[in-house]
Nucleic acid binder design. Sequence first.
DNA 1: TTGAATGGTAAACATTGTTCAATTATGCTT
DNA 2: AAGCATAATTGAACAATGTTTACCATTCAA
Lengths: 204, 204
Amino acid sequence: MARRNDHTREEIQGMAIDATRTLIATEGLEGVSARKVAQHIGYTVGTLYQNFDNIHELILHANAFSLTQLLAALEKVYQAEPRPLPRIISIANTYLDFGQKHEKQWAAIFRHTLPQDFVMPDWYQARIDALFSLIERAVWELAPSRDKKQIQLASRTLWSSVHGICILNTGNKLYSENIATPQTLMQSLVTNYLSAWIQEGSRA
Amino acid sequence: MARRNDHTREEIQGMAIDATRTLIATEGLEGVSARKVAQHIGYTVGTLYQNFDNIHELILHANAFSLTQLLAALEKVYQAEPRPLPRIISIANTYLDFGQKHEKQWAAIFRHTLPQDFVMPDWYQARIDALFSLIERAVWELAPSRDKKQIQLASRTLWSSVHGICILNTGNKLYSENIATPQTLMQSLVTNYLSAWIQEGSRA
DNA sequence: TTGAATGGTAAACATTGTTCAATTATGCTT
DNA sequence: AAGCATAATTGAACAATGTTTACCATTCAA
C-alpha cells in the first residue's frame, strides 16, 4: 500500500492523468473508471477523490493532453509550410490523420459529454480557442486583405466542416464501400470552399 | 400491477419506445434508464428485457424515430423547392433547424455510442442511408451531367460539412460571442463549396 | 514525546445494466 | 369444468459504476 508522502499531490495527479490516458488509449473512454485509475496508480478511490472533484475532471485533463498533442502537430505543419493554401490543406490533413491514428483519444475528446451543471474549465477552453485561433491565422495569411469578421466566419465555417468530415470518418463507417477516402473528401472541401471564398473576396 | 395480455408484445415495445423518447426529450440521453422506462409504462425491468435485448436497442429505436422525423422534414422541403441550389440550401437549413429545435434528440442520435461488439441493425442503418441518398439526389439535380462517383464525393463532402456545423453548434457554444449565427456559416459553406464544385465540373 | 493535522483506506450508498428462479395468469385439452 | 402446459411478469439478486465519509495511520511541530 502506498504510504503518505510517497508522492506529492502533484505527482499523484500526474500519475492519475497518465493512467487515465492509457486507459483511454487502450480501452476507450468507456474503459475509464475511478477504481481502475486508482488501482493503476496504486492508490484507492478515496485518494483519487481528494485530488479530483469528480471523474469528469480527470477525463478532461486527459483530453486536454490529447488536445495539446494535436495542437503541437498542427503548429508544426503550420511552420513547415509557408504557402498559405497548401498550409491550410496540410493542417486539415493533419487534423484528419490525428483522428485516425489516435482514434480512441479523438473519440474521448469529442464524445465525452459533461453533466449539465458542469462548467468547462478555462484551461480546457483555452486549448479549443488555441485551435481555432491557429486556423484563423492560417486563413488570414491566405487573404490578409479581408476584414476580421470575414476571416472569422470563413475559418469557423471551414473548420466546422473539416471537423465534420473527421467525425463521420471515425467510428461509424459512413463511407460504406470506401468509394472515396476521407482524404479525398477533405481535399474536395478545402480547395472548393476556399477557392470560391477567395473569388467572393476579389469580387468585392 | 400490469397483468398478462393487458398489452401485446408489440404494444409494450411501442410504449417502451415512446417512454424512451419522452425521457430523451426531457432529461436527455443520460436521463434514460431501464428502470425509469419500465416504471413509465407500468411494468418491471424484467418485462422490458423480454422485449428488448438491451438498453441500446431501446435507445436505437427512439433515435430511429427521430431520424424518421428528420427525414420527413427534409423530404418536405425537397418537394417544396424545385430549384436545385435553393433546394440544397433549404435542406441544409432544415437539418440545422432540427438540431436546434430538438437538441436533446439530436444529441441522443449523435452522441450515443454503442458497445464494440454491437452490430448496427439494418433498419437503423437504412435511415442513415436514406438521408445520404436524399442529399445525393439533390446534388444530382444540381449537376445531372456529372458522373455518379463525383456526385457521391460531393454529397458526402457537403453533408459531412453541414453535419460538422450542426455538431459544433449544439451543446458546446463554440461561437463564443455569437459573432456569426450558424445559419451564416451554413450559407457560407453551401454556396461557396457548391459554386466552386460546379465550376470545377464545367471546366472538365 | 505528545498532539494536531493530514494522507490514505475501506466500507458504505445510490444507481446503473442485466439475469433468472419463482410466481401467476392465460388458454388449451380432456 | 378442471387441470395442465405455456407464457408473461415479477422481484430479488449481481456486478460495476460514481461519490462520500468515518476511521486509521503517519508525519511534523511544539
